[in-house]
Design a protein around this nucleic acid. Structure first.
Lengths: 135, 135
DNA sequence: TCATGTGTTCTATATCGTATATAACACATG
DNA sequence: CATGTGTTATATACGATATAGAACACATGA
């Protein structure tokens, strides 16, 4: 499975699941049509409550990363992007970038660092996912 | 004042203060030696409890952005950066970048976007702050 | 000397978010 | 018709957030 939970982490469990699903989509491990494990199934796998998994799934649905088919199974959606989402992203990214600037990291170092991170995220997004179709 | 509070925002007040102080340092509005308003003073200005301001200041101190002089006033510290901080930053940045990648934004668009944000953060950091010395 | 303003520490309360637990429901599947 | 979905509801427990009030040691400046 592409999900792991760190109970020692101060990040809430439902957010760990949420973020890792997004990471799985970004990296190409999952793509539009991919079926996610059911709430109860994933919960059982990690010994957590299925409501916690549900909270992560519902958040992902509100953000349009996934949707639920009539079969009631969670499925990865087609990518969606708009100006509102970009602006909200900018606000969070700006806060994060300000940390490095405040600590004296140069613009060049930051850009280079972001570039490396982008590559590590996108590793397989442009290649290996072709040939996987839903349904 | 360079700080404002949005009570409608779901972001905790102490984090709003925390983030805005970092932004002020990053943008050059504050620099090593700059004196922050006292907890009680800033709290009175916004009609909030001084313990809430204290929480923000103590967090900023733990992260070495500020320190308290013998006079007990909060003062901006010299920039500090190390590998541990960079790795923790990478983790958060990677999660944020994955959101855009998962939504289908191209690498070029993301890099361009981060560059613009960086410029908006650093506006005055390289110029206007020279000539301001502590004590 | 003494009043003032600092950050610090302590106790207390109220509210919200997180996580768990249990039960019941409508729905689609095989 | 039993099974497994997501959904909804109620309940409890715990930690984080925010407020409130009191008291303390310390440095400042009148």
């Amino acid at each position: 499975m592409f999900i792991s939970i760190d109970f020692a982490d101060d990040k809430p469990i439902y957010l760990q699941i949420h973020d890792q699903v997004i990471d799985a989509i970004a990296s190409g491990k999952m793509f539009p049509g991919s079926v996610l494990p059911s709430s109860r199934q994933l919960a059982a796998e990690f010994g957590i409550n299925f409501h916690t998994v549900n909270k992560a799934y519902n958040l992902l649905r509100e953000e349009r990363y996934i949707q639920f088919s009539r079969k009631k199974t969670a499925v990865v959606s087609e990518p969606l992007m708009n100006e509102t989402l970009l602006q909200e992203w900018d606000n969070r990214e700006r806060t994060l970038l300000a940390e490095l600037v405040a600590r004296g990291v140069s613009r060049q170092d930051i850009v280079h660092r972001v570039g490396r991170l982008l590559d590590s995220v996108r590793l397989s997004v442009e290649n290996g996912s072709k040939g996987g179709e839903q349904k």
